[in-house]
Computed example of a mutant assay.
Amino acid sequence: MSETQLLLQLVLAGLFFIAAISIDLYKEKIPNKLSLLAIFCGFAINGYYAQLDGVLMASVGFGLAFILLFPTFIFRVLGAGDIKLMMGIGALMGPDLLLSSLLYGIIAGAGTSLVLIIWKTGLSGLSKTVKRYWDCFYLRSYFKPAADEAAGQRVPYAPALAIGWLWACSLDPDVFALYQSWNAILG
């Protein structure tokens, strides 16, 4: 993979994540147009720089994101916009960086979800959820979460996915080599 291709992929993925975070925090939805643009760019850039191998890599990244994340949509863990965004990132960056991004995104999601829930409901919303879970456990019956408690909130997941992607990029040897190359040029 050429430095130009990798740089273009990183810049575009970063821009897609910035747009997704901004929209997801404001509207709690990632637009299809953004995801489709990411998917198109992934196939176009990889196809241009690596021809058939690039299209195959984009296809594997795209498909892997769908296969791994579609069950999370069925069980209402992630929204469709998050999945489509990661399909675009998979097409753009390939399967290796996608897998790392998802793994680190899950880890980051615990922290970002907690911060966003406390931001939305305050500590009282969190304590109401803990109390409701205790009541469900103690009484062996399920009680639906109230609108003012943490479990009753929708949490945008784009920030966690972006943190996971940044974390994966920071550990990727190709990205590190690109950073060192640019640092030598600029520094």
Rank of each mutant, 00 (worst) to 15 (best):
F43L: 00
F43I: 00
F43S: 00
A44M: 05
A44C: 03
A44G: 04
A44F: 08
A44D: 03
I45S: 01
I45H: 02
I45R: 01
N46K: 03
Y48I: 06
Y49V: 03
Y49Q: 00
A50S: 13
A50I: 04
Q51D: 14
Q51F: 10
L52P: 11
L52D: 13
L52W: 09
D53K: 08
G54Y: 03
G54K: 00
V55M: 09
V55R: 02
L56K: 11
L56W: 09
L56N: 13
L56P: 08
L56G: 12
L56I: 14
M57P: 01
M57Y: 05
M57I: 15
M57A: 13
A58R: 00
A58K: 01
A58Y: 02
A58H: 00
S59L: 15
V60P: 05
G61I: 07
G61T: 04
F62H: 02
F62E: 03
F62V: 05
F62T: 00
G63D: 08
G63S: 12
G63Y: 06
L64R: 05
A65K: 06
F66G: 10
L68T: 11
L68A: 02
L68M: 11
L69D: 02
L69T: 04
L69V: 05
F70R: 14
F70H: 15
F70Q: 13
F70W: 15
P71R: 09
P71W: 09
P71G: 10
P71M: 05
P71C: 09
P71A: 10
T72W: 12
T72K: 14
F73M: 09
F73K: 12
F73G: 06
F73T: 05
I74D: 11
I74E: 15
I74M: 14
F75V: 14
R76M: 12
R76H: 15
R76Q: 13
R76V: 15
V77I: 14
V77C: 15
V77F: 14
V77G: 13
L78E: 02
L78V: 06
G79T: 04
A80I: 11
A80L: 10
A80F: 05
G81C: 12
G81M: 09
D82W: 07
D82H: 08
D82G: 07
I83H: 05
K84L: 03
L85H: 09
L85I: 10
L85M: 09
L85G: 06
M86S: 05
M86E: 05
M87A: 10
M87R: 07
G88S: 08
I89Y: 10
I89N: 07
G90Y: 06
G90N: 04
G90M: 01
A91W: 01
A91T: 02
L92C: 00
M93P: 01
M93C: 08
M93E: 05
G94P: 04
G94K: 01
G94Y: 03
P95M: 13
P95Y: 15
P95H: 12
D96F: 15
D96V: 15
D96G: 13
D96Y: 15
L97R: 06
L97H: 03
L98S: 06
L98Q: 05
L98N: 02
